[in-house]
């Protein structure tokens, strides 16, 4: 039984608890012994991405220590996993403990497809899903082929989702354009950020998306924030929630609703 340390990004912990629960349920369903070490807070990405390296370093050191006892570390976020795997070497000197931590940390979908080799997700999701490709998962972790690169097509989240009954996918005009979240970018470059997000929503609307999903709740927080100001907001779910069997509540976003907990 793989012993998994559950890595729940801080904003999911505080604002989207059901995404954390869904992740936990999915991992347990596939036979993992999962534990959430409560000493964890934040991986340090907001600081590192602002250039505040010195502030990020102690957070990175904490993460390594907190997750040391586990065989694997799994998070429902491509972005936070990319921070650990691709950018912790920018913060900390190379060491065995750092390399070990990086090697055992996975985004949820890739952990299911690559480590647990899951071929089939039981359950039905009879909706046309708009799968937003979160950039860090896409272009840092390579969870799918990016539209810029040439080679064989693959997409780990879609590969899992498409085994569910009744599911179909909205084919977007711009397959993997950024939603415009970008951490503090969302506030510092508010005008461009919101235009990017609204453009993504328009693309989903014209592609017939019934439920908007992504592997990163941060992108969805931004998109749903814009979405909630529209006359008919799209239901929004994290990929983990769909995999765990949640169904959309059509009137509003269910991601943060307590009813779904």
């Amino acid at each position: 039984m793989p012993r998994v340390g559950l890595f729940i990004p801080c904003y999911i912990d505080q604002f989207y608890p059901d995404v954390g629960l869904a992740t936990l349920e999915v991992l347990e369903r596939f036979g993992c012994d999962v534990e959430f070490p409560t000493a964890q807070t934040c991986c340090g990405q907001p600081m590192a991405n602002t250039g505040c390296t010195t502030e990020a370093v102690p957070l990175a050191e904490r993460m390594i220590e907190i997750f040391a006892p586990y065989e694997f570390v799994v998070a429902p976020s491509g972005s936070c996993v990319a921070m650990v795997r691709e950018h912790y070497t920018d913060l900390l000197p190379l060491s065995n403990s750092l390399q070990e931590f990086q090697a055992k940390t996975f985004e949820l979908c890739e952990f299911l497809t690559d480590v647990l080799k899951i071929k089939k997700i039981e359950g039905s999701f009879p909706y046309k899903v708009g799968l937003h490709q979160s950039c860090h998962g896409l272009r840092e972790l390579r969870l799918a082929r990016s539209s810029e690169t040439v080679g064989d097509n693959f997409n780990k989240a879609r590969q899992l989702l498409e085994t569910m009954e009744g599911i179909s996918f909205a084919e977007l005009n711009r397959a993997d354009e950024c939603c415009g979240f970008g951490g503090t970018f969302a506030v510092h470059e508010e005008a461009v950020s919101c235009m990017m997000g609204n453009d993504r929503l328009a693309d989903h609307a014209s592609a017939g998306t019934e439920v908007l999903t992504a592997g990163d709740m941060s992108c969805l927080m931004h998109l749903d924030g814009l979405n909630q100001r529209k006359p008919k907001p799209l239901p929004v779910l994290h990929v983990a929630q769909i995999l765990a069997g949640r169904q959309p509540v059509t009137s509003a976003s269910t991601t943060s609703s307590e009813e779904s907990v």
């Binding site: 912990d13 608890p17 409560t38 919101c194 931004h222 943060s256 907990v261």
Partner: peptide, 24 residues
């Protein structure tokens, strides 16, 4: 609130994931 000019903030849940995890 630079976030909120064009965007809603997420609906704040009563309990965080860590609260629910402890209960569970």
């Amino acid at each position: 609130n630079g976030w909120g000019r064009q965007r809603d903030l997420p609906t704040a849940p009563r309990e965080s994931f860590r609260d629910l995890y402890k209960k569970r």
